[in-house]
Design a protein around this nucleic acid. Structure first.
Lengths: 205, 205
DNA sequence: CAACTCACATACAGTCTGCATGTTTCCTTT
DNA sequence: AAAGGAAACATGCAGACTGTATGTGAGTTG
């Protein structure tokens, strides 16, 4: 039969890739990466496995595209709720809440926090995070710690650790944990950083 | 040919299980869970796939046994270096350092922090952690925070978050990150908790 | 020592991934 | 605008893997 509209190659590619990514996202979220078979993905997307392997090197590359898109979406939501008009400390807390809210969208914790690191490796997940969200977090943390003597605290490392705590909070909340409890715990962590740490342990064994 | 020593059934079982777990650990660490095939595991262990599926329900159950053994080993090392004779705060810091050191043993971060959560799920990894290490961490944290007003801080949630930061530090160090930088960052986090947080934000949006 | 259970070994069915090779649709060039 | 080529798929296939069913011999027990 005849196609309704004659589409350019670029349009065809775009539509096929989008259909594959959307179908893959749904199934990866429902069943996890390993338990999702490519025949199911292409069936859901309405194409064949030939199309999949034409556009993506392998199943992992398709997964990477899904993860990248998801991370980009979340970054946009966070920047919307933590605009530059806020003070540093305010932006940090607002951004944190926005992150926890964004991660409540079903499947995101699985994609970004469980399967992502296992399938793509920490290396690559860090690169994705750095491209999208983590830079904002580090800048917010540094700015918010302005009043404190920072000279002995490695801020890059600290950023990573605070980010990990946020991730874990999102995971716990998604699993049914008390959202407010984890928000309070995150605040305790962050506020301890902002005005705490007056003791300077510089040298020890 | 004749077996060197006639072994009872219990001895046979024990030897086979141990050989499987050891071989599996090595290969899971080298290649990751998904890329390790059961034929390779049994070949390395010197048995057949029949033996594997006799002792373990499936590949995942073998992986679970590997993870459980690893977690138990680490817990012993930590308790050795953070004995009850220390004060609460000292035990917390010593235990943290012991954890970071223990996790430098090759493959442990992959087993416990990457593949573990993805293959077994967060639920089950939490149960394993709770059985072995995390209880000590929570008790240490609560005891060390004695001087602080704790009433508004959910300590269970806080324990989880601090544990996540430790995990992430171990992962970063294993990937080549600066160990001392992450140790300092963890100390900043913990010390901020111990005497920080004087501001009590009790009610907000 | 006979019946029985346990600890495996072997064979097999179903499924999956990635590739190689066709076929159709678009694009360019003359 | 016809032709040639390239891009976007579709189809068929090879190799591999998981889990199970069934067979066998060594240990155990009455």
């Amino acid at each position: 039969m005849q196609r309704e509209t004659r589409r350019s190659n670029k349009e065809r590619t775009e539509a096929t890739r989008a259909a594959l990514i959307e179908a893959a996202r749904r199934l990866f979220v429902e069943r996890g990466y390993a338990e999702t078979a490519t025949p199911d993905i292409v069936a859901a997307a309405g194409v064949t496995r030939g199309a999949l392997y034409h556009h993506f090197a392998d199943k992992q590359a398709l997964f990477r595209a899904v993860v990248e898109q998801e991370a980009a979406t979340i970054a946009v939501e966070i920047e919307r709720r933590a605009p530059a008009t806020l003070s540093a400390a305010e932006a940090l807390l607002a951004g944190g809440d926005a992150y926890l809210d964004a991660m409540r969208e079903p499947g995101r914790t699985r994609l970004l926090l469980l399967d992502g690191p296992a399938v793509l490796g920490r290396e690559e997940m860090d690169a994705i995070d750095e491209r999208h969200g983590n830079r904002t977090l580090r800048e917010g943390l540094v700015a918010a710690m302005r009043r404190r003597d920072i000279s002995n605290v490695p801020v890059d490392a600290l950023t990573v650790l605070v980010g990990a705590a946020f991730d874990r909070a999102a995971l716990a909340i998604d699993r049914g944990g008390d959202r407010d409890a984890f928000r309070l715990a995150m605040r305790a962590l962050i506020e301890g950083l902002l005005d705490g740490g007056t003791r300077a342990h510089d040298g020890d064994g």
